[in-house]
Simulated scan of single mutants.
Amino acid sequence: MGSLDGRVAIITGAGRGIGREHALLFAREGASVVVNDLGGANDGSGSDTGPAQRVVDEITAAGGKAVASTGDVADWRGAADLVELAVETFGRLDVLVNNAGILRDAFIAGMDESQWDAVISVHLKGHFAPLRHAAAHWRARAKAGEAVNAAVVNTASASGTFLPNAGQANYGAAKAGIAALTQVAAEELDRYGVRVNAIAPIARTRLTLATPGMGALFAQEVAEGEFDAFSPANISPMVAYLAGEKCPFTGKLFAVQGGAISELGGWHEVRTAQTDGPWNIDDIHAQLTT
Rank of each mutant, 00 (worst) to 15 (best):
A174E: 01
R206H: 11
Q274C: 02
N99P: 04
S159K: 01
P237E: 03
M238I: 13
L209R: 05
A134L: 06
N154C: 10
T211H: 02
E269K: 09
N42G: 01
M214G: 00
T272E: 08
T12W: 07
R104L: 13
A129Q: 10
I235A: 04
S159D: 10
V153D: 03
G213H: 10
I18T: 05
V55R: 06
G251W: 07
R204G: 04
T182V: 08
A41I: 02
Y192R: 06
V73R: 02
F107H: 12
V152F: 13
R141Y: 01
D105S: 14
G91P: 04
I202M: 08
T208Q: 00
K143L: 15
A100R: 04
V270K: 14
F162A: 03
A41T: 12
V148F: 10
T211E: 08
T275C: 04
E58C: 09
G13N: 02
A68S: 15
R16E: 10
I202T: 09
F218L: 04
K252Q: 14
V35E: 01
A173R: 03
I102A: 10
A174F: 03
R139I: 02
N149S: 15
G101R: 02
A147D: 14
I10F: 04
D228Y: 01
G78C: 08
S157V: 08
I178Y: 10
G126N: 05
E29I: 09
T12F: 06
L189A: 05
A86I: 05
A243L: 04
L103A: 12
E188K: 03
G160D: 01
F227P: 00
A176I: 05
S45E: 14
E263I: 09
A151F: 14
T275V: 11
N170A: 15
P212I: 00
G64V: 04
G277Q: 12
N197K: 06
A150N: 07
A27H: 07
I102C: 11
C247N: 15
T250E: 07
T60R: 13
V239K: 01
G259F: 00
N170H: 13
S121N: 15
D57Y: 13
E113S: 15
V119G: 14
